[in-house]
Design a protein around this nucleic acid. Structure first.
Lengths: 343, 343
DNA sequence: CTGAAAGCGCTTACAG
DNA sequence: CTGAAAGCGCTTACAG
């Protein structure tokens, strides 16, 4: 049908091709290209020129076979779709990309079978290490079977404390949020958050409670308003809070989406934010936090940094220097317009 | 510091190990494992058992070297962060994962230099093909240099029409949106959309204009309200539209975020949606469309399907059967509560 | 400074 | 049915 072959029958040039063109042995060509100094300058010139001419790129498979190191890493995520995997993945990719490593991406879709399958494939490809990123902060079962390469768990820690897990400090995050609210002069603070089955929700609440206790306060209503992570719950819960505790002067929300809902209800109710009530979200999800009215102050958990750290720990483990350990990252408050009046 | 070595000095078992344990030659072991039928059943049994025992996984590097095919694909994205890459990537991963292929993920961060760098690395790793996903629908320059493997461009088409590009039909999407509004009985339709420098914005507008022309109508205001993709513009533009054209009974928004802004202003203005005014968004971004008040009807461009198609086309090109061609995918309207009264 | 040889882990004709 | 040999593309001692 088509005269032009769309798949070029083009064979990738090999070192042998380069050597032939340069009139040297493969051994010499190899040395020249790899910058070994036991090669005459003129020879190196010729080899390099030949390589250039053929657009020679050394076959990484052959190199990997020889070296016993492939310069590849497997990134196993359980939900690509989720907002949390991506920044982590970007951080990991960046930290790797700088060097010479390529990353295999696998999405197990939260399915254990698929995970096993992917791990097997990655091991077959002889990755130098594995990064496992989960979408919830609840501990997850460690990878099944004996894994002959280092593994680093990110966001979702491994249930095995001997494994290396890079996590986010949600307790600290909750504390940060409440401390910011206190700094804004607020004292009657409610906490509206997601499903209590999530460790993330419970941890953030614990941090909030602790920060309040530090100054002799407790949460409005005595405990968090657990519900769902969505806007809808934020809207509903805000109504409840205002009704039950008209003195409320701040709301710490477990997610930015909840905060959006809260903001909307407070507008409907004619309560001024941040004049009368401060609202702080969690996640610092740009798309929702930066364009609300008023723009939302939120806690950013530095997920990208988490990913970068995971890569660094993994490489440390691969290189076998100082044994890397688990690490927990603090968040930071990103202040916008919903927490303090701008005077 | 640590008695337990965290990096097992464990050497991955080879076919030789398996053969030795089973008491056969590597050749025979290979045949047994690969299901060749020139092996006695009992022998095969022994080999398989040995492989099992050692958790033997064939070295894919060696196999790739031999076969001249690695079963890997490079996925080159220009912005992981963007909401568009992910579903495409998921589709591609799924379509691949089913078989035996692993995908290398590279994010060029919109940087041409980085892109060249990644392509070089991928080629060095002897990927069987490349998928290039862009974040805008504007044509992009084709990959630089001679690429010895098939390449499929997704979302952002290659500027070279001879290349294979899998794209979204934005003109059709715009048409779909307006046709839905017309079906809801609306006639005074305004179009608020993103920056006119985006081909996506212009295409959607063109489709909308065409659908209106088909029934002898034109856009309210005579042309689209171009601005930005954000909520903020949606809020501002809605004010303008209502002021200039109080008869407005529908708004087609170029993005779900714009639509959120429009919804908010209409609420402030006391205009009932969908009673008095229908609002339709674009992208069907679950997080924003499904939780607004009212829930937002939107155009879904089936990005995941796009990714899957890209993979399929790529494999077709790799296998060298029927030459794959460019393809454009239609969208679909996902109806929620913002376009028609629920009676 | 250069090149012949061995070998990384596998598969595939080819003998036996 | 089984195994010795060659070879995929490279690198690295080891001679010369």
């Amino acid at each position: 049908m088509n005269a032009e072959p769309d798949v070029p029958a083009y064979r990738a040039p090999t070192l042998t091709d380069v050597a032939k063109l340069a009139g040297v042995s493969v051994a010499t060509a190899s040395k020249a290209i790899n910058g070994r100094d036991e090669v005459k300058a003129a020879t190196r010139e010729r080899v390099l020129k030949a390589a250039e001419l053929l657009s020679f790129a050394p076959n990484a498979l052959a190199q990997g076979l020889l070296r016993g190191r492939t310069g590849t890493v497997g990134l196993l995520t359980s939900d690509l779709e989720g907002r949390f995997s991506i920044p982590i993945l970007m951080g990991a990719e960046d930290a790797s990309g700088a060097g010479q490593v390529s990353v295999f991406l696998c999405d197990a879709r939260g399915d254990a079978i698929r995970e096993v399958y992917h791990v097997r494939a990655l091991l077959s490809r002889r990755v130098d290490g594995l990064i496992v990123v989960g979408s919830r902060t609840d501990p997850r079962p460690p990878l099944a079977g004996t894994i002959p390469v280092p593994v680093v768990y990110v966001y979702a820690p491994s249930a095995n404390p001997d494994d290396i897990s890079i996590t986010v400090d949600n307790v600290g995050g909750g504390r940060l949020a409440v401390e910011h609210l206190l700094a804004c002069g607020r004292r009657n603070i409610a906490h509206i958050t997601g499903e209590s089955s999530y460790k993330a929700a419970r941890d953030r609440a614990d941090g909030a409670v602790a920060a309040l206790a530090d100054v002799g306060l407790s949460m409005l209503g005595g405990k968090p308003y657990y519900g769902s992570w969505h806007e809808t719950w934020g809207r509903a819960a805000a109504h409840i809070v205002v009704e039950q505790h008209p003195e409320v002067d701040a709301v710490f929300c477990g997610s930015d989406q909840i905060a959006r809902g809260v903001l909307e209800t407070l507008r409907d109710l004619g309560r001024d934010v941040p004049g009368a009530i401060s609202v702080i979200g969690f996640d610092n999800w740009e798309a929702v936090a930066a364009h609300s009215r008023p723009r939302l102050t939120s806690i950013d958990m530095n997920l990208e940094r988490l990913g970068a750290a995971a890569s660094q720990h993994l490489f440390a483990a691969i290189d076998g220097g100082v044994p890397p350990t688990s690490e927990q990252f603090p968040g930071r408050v990103v202040m916008r317009d919903s927490t303090a009046p701008n005077r």
